[in-house]
Design a protein around this nucleic acid. Structure first.
Length: 581
RNA sequence: GCACCCGUAGCUCAAUUGGAUAGAGCGCCUGACUACGGAUCAGGAGGUUGGGGGUUCGACUCCCUCCGGGUGUGCCA
């Protein structure tokens, strides 16, 4: 028989099917199959308990009838426990078979492919031009990239789109400051983006104290939006400078976009939005602005979604609608995922409600929309992060510090490495640590920024996982064997450590599925950490390089498969691994 | 005011969406290389899951209430 990749799914089907052959069960019965605590078995079906309650039957008797109806299997044993749990314990032979069938890099990839894949746009990172990326941008960038990889891994077609904030009011202020100070954009020194940000800050301070400056800034913005040649040229230059500073960071993070269509790209598409929403009476004039109310919603009946300001200008609600329309029309997106700060939840809820009405009216098929939001990074004062001088910590500084600290560590462990090799390893380790620190906790939670937390290399961290991978590589190197096998002599797992590790390997599909369903990479992190922990225990307890060929092959197989799962899982988080570290 | 998010060990976080005795890391204490990498492993101490009530076979999880923190709430994104 074939060995299912996702055992929860196949056991669940099996139990359901068995239940249908027993009189007491109906179609609405849900087996609720889960992975089980080691003490009770490998998987458990909990569904009999609530079902028995509903039917007024004795749960243990029902459970007994259900397992009597299950087809006999040599692959697992079944028993009833507690008030009516049904526990499955897999045979060692079956564990071995699963690992042989699915537990290599290529097989994991092939097994994870889902037939029902779709075309997904992921909208993430999205920094504003004319400003530097700061630590606040790390979450969208890293979470978005990980989700892109997780979904692509399962066969979805992914379009990564960086929705740059390149057409806001900030340009009026910046252009005004540039002109007032007579700055040349060709001569901004060795850190042009920092200089631009300074100019913006100065301009911002000016308009607050000087009415004439405010008027000037507005005029520059209007000129830009009217297509003034000089301002457009300056704007383009600012955009180029900004993007090249972003690219430096994206290269470090190994994040690459298919598109970077910012707000400016949609500036000539907003009129169509007014027209169509107006035609279908979805929007209305209110206090001079064009707004959308949602009477069916308890809050948005009164709280407007403003799509055109009273001065006639569009805003991000307008461009977001135009963007959504474009992605469906031009790209045939079936799903769109927005990765932004949780403070924008109202905005996206209103956007989705509005889009739904718009698409229905236009008889278009609305893509599945998801707002993947995350918590704020806080400073010591529990407010959104700022440094001492009031500016956020620059993202590039964080990344470079991570690499520097990792380099110290690498040098300390390996005295005779070339600088290039130290640097190569330090990038993988340091950047892995930073990414993992963010991805490993539930994205909806705020967290207080801490250098030590972001750069930790012990315990539940990327370096711990990378270390397990490196130790496995070391074993194969020393034995002069390939991690691809073959491991033909392998006997089924016997010892506690062998069994525990084997069983954990089988849970990879569960973690993957959960991370996908909730669009939360931390489920994958938790799993990988547990796998690495089980491996480390196994490694300390059981010697791999033994003479007995069937024992040796099994342990090598476990090493190989653990490495495959760790590398695969880490790659889905955007984290690389090393042969030696 | 209204809406939403959060409160779990000294600190930072998990908990398979209602499942069995709430688990990790850091820190602290005690141990482990004549061994495949000590960025490791084994063990210990540490909990009224903010308080109180309710729902049921079962609650960190759902409902009510109170306390505390945060965010959003008409022309920024």
């Amino acid at each position: 028989m074939s060995i299912s990749f996702d055992l929860i799914n196949s056991l669940d089907n099996l139990v359901y099917k068995a239940a249908q052959s027993v009189d007491e069960f109906g179609q609405e019965f849900d087996p609720q199959t889960r992975s089980a605590d080691e003490r009770f078995g490998d998987f458990q079906a909990n569904g009999v308990l609530p079902f028995a309650k509903k039917m007024g039957k004795n749960p243990r008797e029902l459970a007994q009838k259900l397992i009597d109806a299950l087809p006999a299997s040599e692959h697992w044993s079944v028993e009833i426990a507690g008030p009516g749990f049904i526990n499955f314990t897999l045979s060692p032979e079956y564990l071995l078979k699963w690992i042989c069938t699915h537990g290599s890099t290529d097989n994991l990839k092939a097994s994870a492919k889902d037939k029902e894949n779709s075309k997904v746009v992921i909208d993430y990172s999205s920094p504003n031009t004319a400003k530097q990326m700061h630590v606040g941008h790390i979450r969208s960038t890293i979470i978005g990239e990980s989700l892109a990889r997780i979904l692509a891994f399962q066969g979805n077609e992914i379009l990564r789109d960086n929705h740059l904030g390149d057409w806001g009011t900030q340009f009026g202020i910046l252009l005004f400051a540039i002109k007032e100070q007579g700055i040349s954009l060709d001569d901004l020194g060795d850190d042009p983006i920092a200089r631009l940000e300074d100019l913006y800050r100065q301009g911002n301070a000016r308009i607050k104290e000087d009415e004439n400056a405010l008027v000037g800034a507005r005029q520059e913005l209007v000129k830009l939006q009217d297509g003034d040649e000089e301002n457009l040229k300056l704007w383009e230059k600012i955009r180029d400078i900004s993007i090249s500073s972003f690219l430096k960071i994206y290269d470090l993070l190994d994040v690459h976009f298919d598109h970077s269509l910012g707000e400016s790209f949609y500036r000539d598409k907003v009129d169509g939005i007014y027209e169509e929403l107006g035609k279908h009476k979805i929007c209305q004039e209110d206090d001079g602005a064009l707004v959308v109310f949602h009477p069916e919603h308890k809050r948005f009946a009164k709280q407007p979604f403003i799509i055109r300001k009273s001065d006639g200008a569009s805003n991000y609600a307008t461009t977001d609608l135009a963007t959504l329309g474009y992605r469906e029309k031009e790209w045939q997106a079936e799903q769109i995922i927005y990765v932004t700060d949780g403070r924008q939840r109202d905005h996206f809820e209103q956007l989705f409600l509005t889009a739904k009405k718009w698409f229905i009216a236009e008889e278009r098929k609305l893509p599945t929309l998801a707002h993947v939001w995350f918590g704020t990074i806080l400073g010591d004062d529990n407010k959104a992060i700022k440094t001492r001088d009031g500016q956020p910590v620059k993202l590039i500084d964080l990344l470079e510090e991570a690499i520097r600290r990792a380099a110290d560590m690498v040098k300390q462990k390996n005295a005779n490495l070339s600088d290039e090799e130290v640097q190569r390893r330090a990038k993988v380790i340091g950047l892995g640590a930073v990414k993992y620190a963010d991805l490993s906790q539930d994205r909806t939670l705020d967290y207080v920024f801490s250098w030590d937390k972001m750069l930790a290399m012990q315990g539940n961290t990327a370096p711990y996982l990378q270390y397990a991978v490196a130790r496995i590589s070391s074993i194969f190197r020393k034995m002069e064997r390939s991690s691809d096998g073959p491991f033909n002599e392998a006997r089924p797992p016997q010892s506690d450590a062998e069994r525990k590790l084997s069983r954990k390997l089988l849970f990879f599909p569960i973690a993957l599925k959960q991370a996908t369903r909730e669009l939360k990479p931390h489920f994958l992190c938790t799993y990988l950490y547990e796998l690495a922990t089980d491996f480390s225990s196994f490694y300390n307890l059981e010697k791999v390089m033994v003479d007995d060929p069937d024992v040796r092959d099994l342990r090598l197989l476990l090493c190989s498969s653990t490495q495959a799962v760790l590398q695969t899982g880490l790659s889905l988080l955007g984290i690389e691994t090393l042969e030696e570290m």
